[in-house]
Design a protein around this nucleic acid. Structure first.
Ligand SMILES: [Zn+2]
Ligand SMILES: [Zn+2]
Ligand SMILES: [Zn+2]
Ligand SMILES: [Zn+2]
Lengths: 159, 159
DNA sequence: GCGCGACACGTTATACAATAACACAGGTGC
DNA sequence: GCACCTGTGTTATTGTATAACGTGTCGCGC
């Protein structure tokens, strides 16, 4: 599975493709894909890993697109809200979505050595937990599923 | 399942039992269960919900057990490291473990209305995600599984 | 007894993450 | 013009977490 993420790939098409897909989605949904939002999405796609809000903000500041935290957070909130990016709770950081457009409940594999993050899909309230929830009458609305470990490229590396 | 957590129960035994179990574990493993660590565990058990580090710290300060953030974080790190408590990444908060002693990979049901948190068990690197990881050669060491929704007691409540 | 390392604890300072609150600017509909 | 909505700019503040350094204590080998 290519989109699973630890492989090398043509990164420029990865960015342009991602941006194009989001432009399309916004057009269809009547959302405003403003310059700040676009730039933040590009930054996430460029980095291709989880990025902290303040790292985003530093870049925006250098480029004159905004210098205060709310600027970055508002753009990130927009992207997350509409499924174009995800927040990695474990890292308090953000990453571009690997399959924008789909309505999905993502899961992540996080490498603790190189910080790479791969997105994959889960069954919405699936498996064991969904079962336990149903038994007790708990209604699941959203799940966070993040696995931490070592990616194939970092296997065997010291520390 | 009683330990799943949204039901009423005898809370005093819940605390004393939890502390006793941890004392026992520490004795066996040769760990130091110091006053600060004990008090923090008690606080988590008393609250019986996710508690922020600074809320813990406030109480420690009132009781003269420490006044600076590292005091609370060190105790919490100890408890988490040895499986006596867990961090809820989604809330940036901590909760006492419901089955201390067992070596387990916990999952949580978080009520967005009343903030109750129930701990349940998962298969270690289970299901879909474990499969995807194996296929790509990713080694999972730890998983975060947190479901957000509405608990049975809050179903139908306004807002 | 003495030196030493391991570990817990105390304290200062700082970094990083997130939001509240208010002002302003541009469109759109009437 | 005017009300309304959405996005942006800015100031200030709160919340979360760690770096770095010093102190005290205990157990161990000598
Ligand atoms: Zn996604
Ligand atoms: Zn890696
Ligand atoms: Zn547990
Ligand atoms: Zn509830």
């Amino acid at each position: 599975m290519d989109s699973l993420g630890f492989k090398h790939h043509d990164h420029s098409t990865c960015i342009s493709g991602g941006v194009a897909a989001v432009i399309q989605s916004c057009k269809e949904a009547g959302l405003q894909f403003t310059p700040v939002r676009k730039r933040v999405l590009e930054l996430l796609l460029e980095r291709h890993r989880a990025v902290g809000a303040y790292e985003i903000l530093d870049t925006l500041r250098e480029e004159g697109l905004g210098s205060q935290p709310p600027v970055a957070y508002r753009a990130l909130d927009f992207l997350v809200k509409h499924g174009f990016a995800h927040k990695i709770e474990r890292l308090n950081a953000f990453i571009a979505c690997a399959h924008p457009g789909d309505n999905h409940s993502p899961a992540f594999l996080i490498c603790r050595s190189c910080d790479a993050v791969a997105e994959t899909a889960t069954v919405a309230a699936g498996g064991r937990l969904g079962q336990a929830a149903e038994e007790t009458g708990f209604t699941i609305e959203r799940t966070v599923l993040e696995a931490e470990g070592v990616c194939p490229n970092c296997q065997g590396k010291p520390e």
